[in-house]
Computed example of a mutant assay.
Amino acid sequence: MNVLFAPDWRSGVPYQRLLAEALEAHGVRVSFLQHYKRLMPLTRLLRINPTELFHLHWPEAYYPRLRDRWDKIRRARFSVDLILATRNKPFVLTAHNLCEHNLQHLPFAQVNYATAYRRANLIFAHSAAAKVKLARTYGVDERKVRVVPHGDLSVVMPPPIPRDEARAKLGLPEGPLCLMFGAVEPYKGQEEVLAYWKEARPAAHLVIVGKPDSPEYGQTIRQFAADIPNVTLHFQWLSDAELADFLCAADCALFNYRTIFTSGAASLARSWGLPILMPSRLETVDLGEPDPRVFRFEAFDAQFPQKLAAALAIAPDYQAAAGWRDQISWPRVAELTVAGYREVLAK
């Protein structure tokens, strides 16, 4: 079976590479759609890249925002481009996002995602709640949505090291430490977290690590954090080994997405055995709940200190997360994915 993944974002996230490698055990040969062409990029690229099955991951790669006079045209043409590209081609889509991050307000944002989800022969969603939300948001028939776990990103990391050793390597202080990690972007709610740390002064050090999505936004967060003594910012891209050190140094992980459909970062923290704090509103993020290491909160209100204290009271435990890692293992993800492929190709 030949499958074409698009876009090729292996350099930014390990998800596609890990899935492709796991699919090989089932006789699936995965290739990656390279480059970008003007006018109708998907139609032109698929014409010169024959495949049995087209597997799209992130639609927005084919209407990139370049902040030039052609931005609106690129967005406007996508639906037609996708329809033409998949006229005679079986097409599946992984629902990484409900809509593109930070850009939901732009023209054609909802239309383009709606076209992709409605056009797909089969959709892979990362949770049962995500399946329901897809159906409600875009009018997708739930019968063409298959629930497949996100996959275990911890497999690319080096083995955990003791917390004190990790903190010494990173120059981090002793005492309770709460970690926010991943690309630093507006939809992740760092400003609200920093406002809480400034006002409430919790007895825990907050560490925010990752590369800002723009120099301007990085400066905004630096200004927010400037006069908060128990906050450390580490603004740069992290290798897998560097991220592992921060995960080992932390006592808990905090996520405050304004909105999110699935979270590879939260799944990774869960795989690492870190206690996790996450808003209740993010119901489509599957963390294997109920679980004693997952704490949902409503807001940064009078109840949040209790949630934070409870998370910090439970020691991180990599071994305790073994069951979760088995549940989202790449062999299991590949098995479920191949079943979906075969279903589409049999029609």
Rank of each mutant, 00 (worst) to 15 (best):
Q306S: 13
N121C: 01
Y217F: 13
A321E: 00
E24D: 12
H101E: 10
L153Y: 14
D251Q: 09
C99P: 08
A244V: 01
G218S: 05
A20D: 09
A128M: 12
R74L: 02
S31N: 14
G323I: 00
A128T: 13
D291R: 00
D71I: 07
L238E: 04
L282D: 09
R146I: 06
Q219C: 08
K72A: 13
Y36D: 10
W237Q: 09
E335G: 15
V184D: 05
A313I: 05
T284A: 06
L194M: 12
A166V: 08
Y113D: 14
R167Y: 07
L33T: 15
F124Q: 09
N97T: 07
S127I: 00
R29C: 11
K347Y: 05
F5I: 05
P107C: 01
W330F: 02
F304R: 02
Y113F: 15
W70I: 05
A266H: 00
A95N: 04
T337G: 04
F246Y: 15
R75H: 14
P90M: 05
D251K: 07
S154F: 06
A25P: 06
I208C: 07
P229G: 06
F224M: 10
P14M: 04
S11Q: 14
L66T: 13
G27F: 00
A22R: 12
E199D: 11
L206I: 12
Y187R: 14
K347N: 15
D68E: 03
A241N: 03
A299Q: 08
P160T: 11
L206C: 07
F108V: 10
S214M: 03
Q319R: 10
E60D: 10
H57V: 11
A125Y: 06
E335Q: 15
N2P: 13
L23H: 11
P292Y: 00
Y62Q: 02
R342E: 15
A116K: 01
G27L: 05
I73V: 14
V147E: 08
A85N: 02
P176T: 03
L170W: 08
K144W: 01
L206E: 10
R293K: 04
L308V: 12
F91K: 03
S267M: 07
F32T: 12
A320R: 05
P292Q: 01
L336I: 04
K144T: 02
A309I: 03
H205G: 11
V30H: 04
R342I: 03
V28Y: 06
C99V: 13
R136E: 09
R29T: 15
P173Q: 11
E165G: 01
P159H: 00
A269N: 02
A168S: 14
H234I: 12
L336E: 09
I260S: 14
R143K: 10
K169I: 11
G323S: 07
P212H: 03
P305K: 14
A249E: 12
P202F: 09
E174R: 12
I208F: 06
E52Q: 15
H26C: 09
T284I: 04
L238F: 04
H57Q: 15
F5E: 02
Q16G: 03
Q319F: 01
F261Y: 11
R325P: 04
F235I: 00
I260C: 13
S154C: 08
Q34P: 03
K89Q: 10
P331L: 09
K169R: 15
S263C: 11
Q327L: 06
F255I: 00
E21Q: 15
P215G: 08
F54K: 07
R136M: 08
